[in-house]
Design a protein around this nucleic acid. Structure first.
Lengths: 160, 160
DNA sequence: GCAATCCTGACCGCAGTGGTAGGATTTGAG
DNA sequence: CTCAAATCCTACCACTGCGGTCAGGATTGC
């Protein structure tokens, strides 16, 4: 359904949200803490930047910072930026520009009363509603509590 | 997210539900009516039969019949039978036998407070809830009603 | 017997995912 | 000024799974 881009991208945002925000966070540190490949994470961060969810500063001691406070970041925009679309069926492209455009496999005039369209529309609304209800701040709070497993530095809960 | 197995399988069930149910419906007729490849549809029908959603009669004039009335068939069981799992993330396997078993990428004890787990759980519940609310009878009624009513308001979001 | 139909296994092209490689560019620190 | 740290960018690639085909076998009504 969703790919690892969404998984890794959300984890990256949680790391940025857990950080104070005074100075930027490098992808290298996130990749090491989350055990993710750095080169792959770079391309994921590019998606988030293109969507305006993060800002970047290049050069030494550069990195990424959340463009807006975590409370104002709802996960539907995040997943949309990372996955490109939120659609339960591949023939089901949600074009935000126009109204609800649906390219069903029932391509012709038959598509007007395509019954599966009704089903996938409900599923899509269910997914988007679940994502909209969740903010990044909520996930950050969930990730940083229960500090018994990471007492010394709650931002760096590496075991071993 | 979902594959064409779900799309084709649901359409097959709608065809079976639209039929009276007196005598079985052959896959060949459904394949021609829906413009689907017969050999592929056969394997999809096997999934529905294995899940106990349809019954089959072999031989000449054989075919498939709904195992239960369409009102008692909720779409979550249908999609589960066709897709094998309803999970927003590949590391997210819903095992109905035990409790919520989650194999997150944070594999070890760290998975206890894995923040993405919270997000994907909500999405999964949203999808399953949307599917559970929809019955096959509802889709059959939507598919068999007059087309002129559908053409007037194709975006008609009436929940009825 | 024969045709229709369900059933089964093997096979296969293709697109996308997940990841790598290699570099180019910008910037702070010494 | 130089170097290292970091973001950027493009191309490349192995692998998996999807969508589909093919061939054949098993079962039944006429």
């Amino acid at each position: 359904m969703f790919t690892t881009k969404a998984e890794y991208g959300v984890r990256l945002l949680i790391r940025l949200g857990s950080h104070g925000g005074s100075h930027p966070v490098s992808l290298k540190s996130v990749a090491e803490a989350e055990q993710l490949p750095l080169a792959y994470l770079e391309r994921i961060a590019a998606l988030l930047k293109k969507a305006g969810l993060v800002t970047s500063t290049r050069g030494a001691h550069g990195g990424y910072v959340l463009a807006r406070p975590a409370e104002e970041v709802s996960m539907d925009r995040v997943v949309l930026a990372l996955e490109g679309a939120i659609a339960p069926m591949d023939c089901f492209v949600d074009d935000p520009g126009s109204e609800h455009r649906v390219q069903c496999s029932h391509h012709d005039a038959d598509a007007q009363h395509c019954a599966t369209k009704l089903l996938w529309t409900r599923v899509q609304l269910g997914v988007i509603a679940s994502l909209q209800r969740t903010t990044l701040a909520e996930l950050v709070a969930f990730a940083t509590r229960e500090p018994d497993l990471a007492e010394l530095s709650p931002l760096d809960p590496r075991p071993s």
